[in-house]
Design a protein around this nucleic acid. Structure first.
Length: 494
RNA sequence: GUCCCCAUCAUCUAGAGGCCCAGGAUGCGGCCCUUUCAAGGCUGAAACGCGGGUUCGAAUCCCGCUGGGGACACCA
């Protein structure tokens, strides 16, 4: 363990690929608490080394959501700092230089194996019931020969040269000593063909150059930590302390996922969870106040923060308890003035109201009917009638299946606007060979619980992805639920 | 499959050898309060996965099993 007394610097390093994740806020909160407790700095670094998936839109949403949640960082792409740039795509020369250095030191090597060969290799290994992993073909070749091939135009990557013998020890602040046999560690790609680093390289290089002292991250990373340890050693750098936090879980204990839980921070903002309540709730995932208090502020958490109080069982993210806690804040700590302000901001901003007005004004002729007509613009769930969900000639099963398919496509599609939605809807209807209205009518009912509404996709765009997604899922559940109990149930035939 | 991590009520957890026939909170049931619904108060059901050790004594330490999770990409 390093005995250095460097000033504490910690970071979170989300990748901007999709909606801002509640797990990012969770890990961020613990990093923040740790940094504050020790008078250190908390940094946000954007890990956008995956060119195919990273987007600026997603990155902006991360900034926004963290700001909303009150998880404030001291340094980051949008606010700068002395160790920038804080976006990995802007640090490329550094990784390339360091990768070359590692090759020079003999701890990494160039590899010209094609993705096709690797794919075939994996297939073979799978068939032979061996563990998948790089076979070291280029590792054992004469470097001059490989260089010649590269000079001739062959694309190449740089791989970590993992010792074939021995063990690599990871020291985790919560778990102690964890050993990994080197022969079980793959020769990880460090620099991709496109010249971008992989997570492993970028992460280690940046943590070193940004003088990160403690890496506090999700448990999912623990098995790749030996690679990082090897990298630090390979560079001759002092490694930071590692601390792997338990993962947030779905009800079935699997890693929290959007299929089974709302994972987007946007969801929590939209449904009116108070940032203070969210922080409080996240703070009790795996951690407790020494006196057992369940309601506490961020400052109180910081004052009492101690990694040693973290319990290692993966906590199930329980929406019900979050809602209870939020209710407690709403009724006990928020003044009527603050309540009004929060309501205006979260449920009825002028901006939002204006958009609703443009959709509703031509369909209503007395103001008193406004909220009734457009009730679905102002609520979370909508109680729709199962029977209304199923058009004539279609079965509940079919509709449930179609809506489920729609939700899946929504999940894959980051963008959200009426054109995208309409195209998605029409494509789905076409694929099923359905008339558009056989699909659109159930969607309308699922989203609004009504048959008469403004144009469906305008309505959905305005209501937003998070709320629409939730309502769709609720409709699916309704369709798949066993039929409501009949007072006089017919005798079952089987 | 291989490697790694984890293991107290349904859920979040307290518990670092005797204070524990296990405490708090959510959720669930009951009662009270109340014009209603909430909220609030009181109250009930509800857990140390199993088997071996160590010890005068184990939820707490050790080992095994079982169970759960995670990781095995030119994604992070």
């Amino acid at each position: 363990m390093s005995g250095s007394q460097r000033p504490v610097r910690v970071r979170i390093a989300p990748s901007p690929t999709g909606d801002p994740h509640v797990g990012t806020a969770y890990i961020g909160l613990f990093n923040l608490a740790f940094a504050r407790k020790h008078g250190g700095k908390f940094i946000l670094r954007i890990e956008d080394t995956d060119q195919t998936r990273s987007t600026r839109k997603s990155e902006e949403m991360i900034f926004r959501s963290l700001r909303w949640a009150g998880i404030a960082y001291d340094e980051g792409p949008d606010i700068g700092g002395p160790f920038g740039p804080y976006r990995q795509s802007e640090r490329l020369p550094l990784y390339q230089k360091e990768a070359a250095e590692l090759v020079r030191r003999g701890n990494a090597y160039k590899c010209t194996c094609t993705p096709e060969r690797l794919e075939a290799l994996r297939e073979e290994q799978k068939k032979a019931k061996q563990n998948p992993g790089y076979d070291g073909r280029c590792r054992d070749r004469d470097p001059a020969e490989v260089d010649k091939e590269i000079a001739g135009g062959a694309p190449h990557v740089v791989r970590l040269k993992v010792p074939r013998e021995g063990v690599t020890v990871v020291t985790d602040l919560l778990r102690g000593r964890v050993e990994f046999e080197n022969k079980g560690i793959d020769d990880q790609v460090l620099l991709k063909t496109d010249g971008f680093p992989t997570y492993h390289l970028a992460n280690v290089v940046d943590d070193h150059h940004m003088q990160i002292t403690h890496v506090i991250r999700g448990e999912e990373w623990i098995t790749s930590t030996p690679k990082h340890v090897l990298l630090y050693a390979g560079f001759g750098w002092e490694a930071p302390e590692f601390c792997h936090l338990p993962l947030l879980r779905n009800e079935d204990k699997s890693k929290v996922s959007k299929r089974k839980n709302p994972t987007s921070l946007v969801f929590y903002e939209r449904c009116g969870i108070l940032p203070a309540a969210l922080r409080n709730y996240l703070g009790m995932m795996g951690w407790t106040m020494p006196d057992g208090r369940e309601v506490f502020t961020l400052d109180e958490m910081i004052a009492n923060f101690d990694l040693g109080r973290i319990s290692l069982g993966g906590p199930v993210f329980d929406l019900k308890k979050l809602f209870w806690l939020n209710g407690k804040y709403l009724r006990e700590v928020v003044s009527t003035e603050d309540y009004l302000a929060a309501l205006r901001q979260s449920q009825a901003s002028d901006e939002y109201l204006k958009k609703v007005i443009t959709l509703v004004k031509e369909r209503v002729d007395k103001l008193e009917d406004f909220f009734d007509y457009g009730s679905y613009f102002f609520c979370g769930s909508v109680r729709c009638d199962v029977k209304e969900l199923v058009p004539k000639g279609r079965t509940a099963d079919e509709i449930a299946g179609a809506l489920a398919e729609l939700v899946e496509r929504i999940d894959k599609q980051f963008a959200w606007n009426k054109d995208v939605l309409e195209q998605m809807g029409r494509t789905l209807a076409d694929e099923k060979g359905w008339k558009a209205k056989d699909l659109f009518a159930p969607i309308r009912v699922a989203i609004t619980a009504k048959n008469a509404t403004p144009p469906l996709f305008d309505t959905m765009e305005l209501i937003g992805k998070e709320v629409c997604r939730r309502r769709l899922r609720e409709a699916i559940a309704l369709l798949r639920a066993p039929p409501a109990k009949d007072p006089t149930p017919p005798k079952a035939a089987n």
